[in-house]
Protein backbone atom coordinates (compact mmCIF):
# COMPACT_ATOMS: atom_id res chain seq x y z
CA UNK A 1 0.00 0.00 0.00
CA UNK A 2 2.04 2.91 -1.21
CA UNK A 3 -0.55 5.24 -2.60
CA UNK A 4 -1.87 6.84 0.60
CA UNK A 5 -0.61 10.00 2.17
CA UNK A 6 1.94 9.53 4.92
CA UNK A 7 0.28 9.62 8.34
CA UNK A 8 3.37 8.84 10.40
CA UNK A 9 6.88 9.88 9.42
CA UNK A 10 9.90 9.59 11.66
CA UNK A 11 13.42 10.49 10.56
CA UNK A 12 16.47 9.71 12.64
CA UNK A 13 14.48 9.28 15.84
CA UNK A 14 16.86 8.78 18.77
CA UNK A 15 15.84 8.21 22.38
CA UNK A 16 18.19 7.15 25.16
CA UNK A 17 17.26 6.42 28.76
CA UNK A 18 20.05 6.96 31.24
CA UNK A 19 23.50 6.57 29.73
CA UNK A 20 23.33 3.31 27.91
CA UNK A 21 19.76 2.26 27.18
CA UNK A 22 19.22 3.04 23.52
CA UNK A 23 15.46 2.64 23.24
CA UNK A 24 15.42 4.14 19.76
CA UNK A 25 18.61 4.31 17.75
CA UNK A 26 17.88 6.42 14.69
CA UNK A 27 14.53 5.06 13.54
CA UNK A 28 13.09 5.94 10.13
CA UNK A 29 9.50 4.85 9.67
CA UNK A 30 6.73 5.88 7.30
CA UNK A 31 3.16 4.71 7.69
CA UNK A 32 0.62 5.68 5.03
CA UNK A 33 -3.06 6.27 5.33
CA UNK A 34 -5.16 3.15 5.88
CA UNK A 35 -2.21 0.91 6.68
CA UNK A 36 -2.38 -1.55 9.55
CA UNK A 37 1.17 -2.03 10.78
CA UNK A 38 2.55 -4.28 13.48
CA UNK A 39 5.67 -3.26 15.40
CA UNK A 40 7.24 -6.54 16.43
CA UNK A 41 10.18 -7.24 18.66
CA UNK A 42 11.34 -8.64 21.99
CA UNK A 43 10.94 -6.78 25.28
CA UNK A 44 13.20 -3.77 25.38
CA UNK A 45 13.45 -3.51 21.60
CA UNK A 46 12.03 0.02 21.70
CA UNK A 47 8.63 -0.60 20.13
CA UNK A 48 6.59 0.90 22.94
CA UNK A 49 8.93 3.86 23.19
CA UNK A 50 8.57 4.46 19.48
CA UNK A 51 4.79 4.36 19.79
CA UNK A 52 4.76 6.78 22.70
CA UNK A 53 6.69 9.30 20.62
CA UNK A 54 3.90 9.37 18.04
CA UNK A 55 1.48 11.28 20.27
CA UNK A 56 4.05 13.16 22.30
CA UNK A 57 3.84 11.17 25.53
CA UNK A 58 7.61 10.79 25.19
CA UNK A 59 9.96 13.39 23.68
CA UNK A 60 12.90 12.32 21.47
CA UNK A 61 16.51 13.25 22.08
CA UNK A 62 16.84 14.06 18.40
CA UNK A 63 15.15 13.42 15.07
CA UNK A 64 11.97 14.50 13.31
CA UNK A 65 8.49 13.13 13.87
CA UNK A 66 5.50 14.16 11.79
CA UNK A 67 2.11 12.69 12.59
CA UNK A 68 -0.97 13.69 10.59
CA UNK A 69 1.08 16.56 9.20
CA UNK A 70 1.94 17.93 12.64
CA UNK A 71 5.49 18.27 13.90
CA UNK A 72 5.17 16.35 17.18
CA UNK A 73 8.63 17.32 18.41
CA UNK A 74 7.88 21.02 18.62
CA UNK A 75 4.13 20.82 19.27
CA UNK A 76 3.04 21.69 22.76
CA UNK A 77 0.07 23.06 24.65
CA UNK A 78 -3.05 23.48 22.57
CA UNK A 79 -1.40 22.27 19.35
CA UNK A 80 -0.29 19.03 20.99
CA UNK A 81 -3.74 18.50 22.49
CA UNK A 82 -5.32 19.09 19.10
CA UNK A 83 -3.09 16.38 17.63
CA UNK A 84 -3.76 13.96 20.47
CA UNK A 85 -7.45 14.37 19.85
CA UNK A 86 -6.92 12.97 16.34
CA UNK A 87 -4.88 9.99 17.63
CA UNK A 88 -6.65 7.27 19.59
CA UNK A 89 -4.52 5.17 21.93
CA UNK A 90 -5.24 1.68 23.25
CA UNK A 91 -3.01 0.62 26.17
CA UNK A 92 -1.87 -2.79 27.34
CA UNK A 93 -3.25 -2.18 30.84
CA UNK A 94 -6.47 -0.64 29.46
CA UNK A 95 -5.96 2.39 31.74
CA UNK A 96 -9.58 2.69 32.75
CA UNK A 97 -10.68 4.31 35.99
CA UNK A 98 -11.86 1.13 37.68
CA UNK A 99 -14.33 2.70 40.04
CA UNK A 100 -16.11 4.80 37.42
CA UNK A 101 -18.80 3.39 35.20
CA UNK A 102 -18.03 2.03 31.76
CA UNK A 103 -19.94 4.97 30.26
CA UNK A 104 -17.88 7.58 32.11
CA UNK A 105 -14.69 5.92 30.93
CA UNK A 106 -15.84 5.96 27.32
CA UNK A 107 -16.97 9.59 27.63
CA UNK A 108 -13.42 10.55 28.63
CA UNK A 109 -12.56 9.94 24.96
CA UNK A 110 -14.47 13.11 24.06
CA UNK A 111 -12.59 15.36 26.49
CA UNK A 112 -10.54 16.79 23.64
CA UNK A 113 -13.55 18.26 21.87
CA UNK A 114 -15.57 19.67 24.75
CA UNK A 115 -14.49 22.70 26.71
CA UNK A 116 -13.94 22.60 30.42
CA UNK A 117 -13.72 19.82 32.94
CA UNK A 118 -16.38 17.15 33.35
CA UNK A 119 -17.32 15.04 36.34
CA UNK A 120 -20.15 12.55 36.14
CA UNK A 121 -22.23 11.39 33.20
CA UNK A 122 -24.85 14.12 33.37
CA UNK A 123 -22.27 16.84 32.83
CA UNK A 124 -21.82 15.59 29.25
CA UNK A 125 -23.99 16.84 26.37
CA UNK A 126 -26.63 14.38 25.33
CA UNK A 127 -25.27 14.11 21.79
CA UNK A 128 -21.92 12.91 23.12
CA UNK A 129 -23.63 10.45 25.43
CA UNK A 130 -25.56 9.00 22.49
CA UNK A 131 -22.40 8.70 20.46
CA UNK A 132 -20.57 7.03 23.34
CA UNK A 133 -23.41 4.60 23.69
CA UNK A 134 -23.24 3.74 19.99
CA UNK A 135 -19.56 2.94 20.31
CA UNK A 136 -20.24 0.78 23.35
CA UNK A 137 -22.86 -1.03 21.31
CA UNK A 138 -20.34 -1.51 18.53
CA UNK A 139 -17.84 -3.18 20.87
CA UNK A 140 -20.69 -5.32 22.23
CA UNK A 141 -20.94 -3.86 25.72
CA UNK A 142 -24.07 -1.69 25.58
CA UNK A 143 -25.61 -3.65 28.42
CA UNK A 144 -22.64 -2.87 30.67
CA UNK A 145 -22.79 0.91 30.27
CA UNK A 146 -23.56 1.75 33.89
CA UNK A 147 -21.52 -0.95 35.52
CA UNK A 148 -18.21 -0.25 37.25
CA UNK A 149 -15.38 -0.61 34.73
CA UNK A 150 -13.26 -2.44 37.30
CA UNK A 151 -15.82 -5.21 37.56
CA UNK A 152 -15.41 -6.25 33.90
CA UNK A 153 -13.09 -8.96 32.63
CA UNK A 154 -9.84 -8.01 30.97
CA UNK A 155 -11.17 -8.51 27.44
CA UNK A 156 -14.25 -6.44 28.21
CA UNK A 157 -12.15 -3.68 29.70
CA UNK A 158 -10.04 -3.52 26.56
CA UNK A 159 -13.23 -3.25 24.49
CA UNK A 160 -14.25 -0.30 26.65
CA UNK A 161 -10.86 1.24 26.02
CA UNK A 162 -11.37 0.76 22.28
CA UNK A 163 -14.76 2.46 22.51
CA UNK A 164 -13.09 5.32 24.35
CA UNK A 165 -10.53 5.66 21.57
CA UNK A 166 -13.25 5.54 18.91
CA UNK A 167 -15.17 8.35 20.60
CA UNK A 168 -12.21 10.58 19.83
CA UNK A 169 -13.13 10.10 16.13
CA UNK A 170 -9.44 9.36 15.55
CA UNK A 171 -7.61 9.33 12.21
CA UNK A 172 -4.77 7.23 13.60
CA UNK A 173 -4.98 4.47 16.23
CA UNK A 174 -1.93 3.57 18.30
CA UNK A 175 -2.23 0.27 20.13
CA UNK A 176 0.47 -0.58 22.68
CA UNK A 177 0.45 -4.34 23.31
CA UNK A 178 -3.35 -4.27 23.25
CA UNK A 179 -3.77 -7.98 23.92
CA UNK A 180 -0.68 -8.84 25.95
CA UNK A 181 -2.70 -9.00 29.19
CA UNK A 182 -5.36 -11.29 27.73
CA UNK A 183 -5.73 -15.02 27.23
CA UNK A 184 -5.27 -16.31 23.64
CA UNK A 185 -8.96 -16.62 22.80
CA UNK A 186 -9.89 -13.21 24.18
CA UNK A 187 -6.80 -11.78 22.53
CA UNK A 188 -7.98 -13.01 19.14
CA UNK A 189 -11.42 -11.49 19.56
CA UNK A 190 -10.02 -8.13 20.71
CA UNK A 191 -7.55 -8.07 17.78
CA UNK A 192 -10.42 -8.91 15.46
CA UNK A 193 -12.46 -6.03 16.84
CA UNK A 194 -9.58 -3.58 16.64
CA UNK A 195 -8.65 -4.45 13.07
CA UNK A 196 -12.28 -4.60 11.96
CA UNK A 197 -13.17 -1.11 13.20
CA UNK A 198 -10.01 0.30 11.67
CA UNK A 199 -10.82 -1.30 8.28
CA UNK A 200 -14.46 -0.23 8.38
CA UNK A 201 -13.65 3.36 9.31
CA UNK A 202 -10.54 3.54 7.10
CA UNK A 203 -8.31 4.30 10.09
CA UNK A 204 -4.57 3.93 10.11
CA UNK A 205 -3.26 1.70 12.90
CA UNK A 206 0.16 1.14 14.38
CA UNK A 207 0.13 -1.70 16.86
CA UNK A 208 2.97 -3.11 18.94
CA UNK A 209 2.82 -6.86 19.47
CA UNK A 210 5.19 -9.43 20.78
CA UNK A 211 3.42 -12.47 19.45
CA UNK A 212 4.48 -13.36 15.94
CA UNK A 213 1.31 -15.30 15.14
CA UNK A 214 -0.94 -12.34 15.96
CA UNK A 215 1.10 -10.04 13.74
CA UNK A 216 0.97 -12.50 10.82
CA UNK A 217 -2.73 -13.11 11.22
CA UNK A 218 -4.05 -9.58 11.71
CA UNK A 219 -1.75 -7.05 10.09
CA UNK A 220 -0.63 -6.29 6.55
CA UNK A 221 2.87 -5.05 7.29
CA UNK A 222 5.40 -5.96 9.93
CA UNK A 223 8.17 -3.69 11.18
CA UNK A 224 10.65 -5.70 13.24
CA UNK A 225 12.60 -3.86 15.89
CA UNK A 226 15.58 -4.99 17.86
CA UNK A 227 17.76 -2.96 20.21
CA UNK A 228 16.13 0.25 19.05
CA UNK A 229 16.77 -0.37 15.34
CA UNK A 230 14.50 -1.37 12.47
CA UNK A 231 15.77 -4.80 11.40
CA UNK A 232 12.94 -5.73 9.06
CA UNK A 233 10.08 -3.95 7.28
CA UNK A 234 8.00 -6.04 4.89
CA UNK A 235 4.44 -6.87 3.88
CA UNK A 236 3.03 -9.71 5.95
CA UNK A 237 2.55 -11.92 2.90
CA UNK A 238 6.29 -12.14 2.31
CA UNK A 239 7.05 -13.27 5.86
CA UNK A 240 6.91 -16.44 7.83
CA UNK A 241 7.20 -17.22 11.51
CA UNK A 242 10.65 -18.73 11.14
CA UNK A 243 12.15 -15.55 9.75
CA UNK A 244 10.44 -13.42 12.38
CA UNK A 245 11.76 -15.58 15.15
CA UNK A 246 15.22 -14.34 14.25
CA UNK A 247 14.28 -11.07 15.90
CA UNK A 248 14.06 -12.83 19.21
CA UNK A 249 17.23 -14.92 19.09
CA UNK A 250 19.86 -13.77 21.53
CA UNK A 251 22.94 -12.16 20.10
CA UNK A 252 26.27 -13.94 20.23
CA UNK A 253 27.50 -13.54 23.77
CA UNK A 254 29.97 -10.71 24.04
CA UNK A 255 31.54 -10.81 27.48
CA UNK A 256 33.93 -7.95 28.10
Amino acid sequence: MTGGLPVVETRGLVKTFGDDVHACASIDLTVRQGEIVALLGPSGSGKSTLLRHLNGLTRPDSGDIRVLGVDVVTAKGAALRALRRRVGVVFQQFNLVGRLTVMENVLNGALGRVRGPRYGIVTWPKSVRVEAFEHLDRVGLADRAYQRAGSLSGGQQQRVAIARALLQRPELVLADEPVASLDPETAASVMDLLVRVCREDGLTMVCTLHQIELALQWTRRVVGLRRGEVRLDEPTGALDAVRLRGLYLSDPVTVP
Partner: peptide, 28 residues
Protein backbone atom coordinates in the same frame (compact mmCIF):
# COMPACT_ATOMS: atom_id res chain seq x y z
CA UNK B 1 -2.48 5.25 38.12
CA UNK B 2 -0.41 7.21 35.63
CA UNK B 3 -1.77 5.03 32.85
CA UNK B 4 -5.20 6.55 33.27
CA UNK B 5 -3.72 10.03 33.24
CA UNK B 6 -1.90 9.19 30.02
CA UNK B 7 -5.04 7.75 28.52
CA UNK B 8 -6.95 10.93 29.30
CA UNK B 9 -4.07 13.10 28.09
CA UNK B 10 -4.05 11.01 24.92
CA UNK B 11 -7.55 12.17 24.06
CA UNK B 12 -6.28 15.75 23.80
CA UNK B 13 -7.74 16.84 27.14
CA UNK B 14 -6.61 20.12 28.69
CA UNK B 15 -5.10 20.44 32.17
CA UNK B 16 -8.38 20.99 34.04
CA UNK B 17 -10.01 18.12 32.13
CA UNK B 18 -7.08 15.85 32.89
CA UNK B 19 -7.41 16.68 36.58
CA UNK B 20 -11.14 16.08 36.73
CA UNK B 21 -11.28 13.18 34.28
CA UNK B 22 -8.05 11.33 34.98
CA UNK B 23 -7.09 12.14 38.56
CA UNK B 24 -10.08 13.11 40.67
CA UNK B 25 -12.17 9.98 40.02
CA UNK B 26 -9.22 7.87 41.11
CA UNK B 27 -8.41 9.81 44.26
CA UNK B 28 -11.98 10.58 45.34
Amino acid sequence: DTGVREAVAGTGAGPAQRLLGGVLPQVA
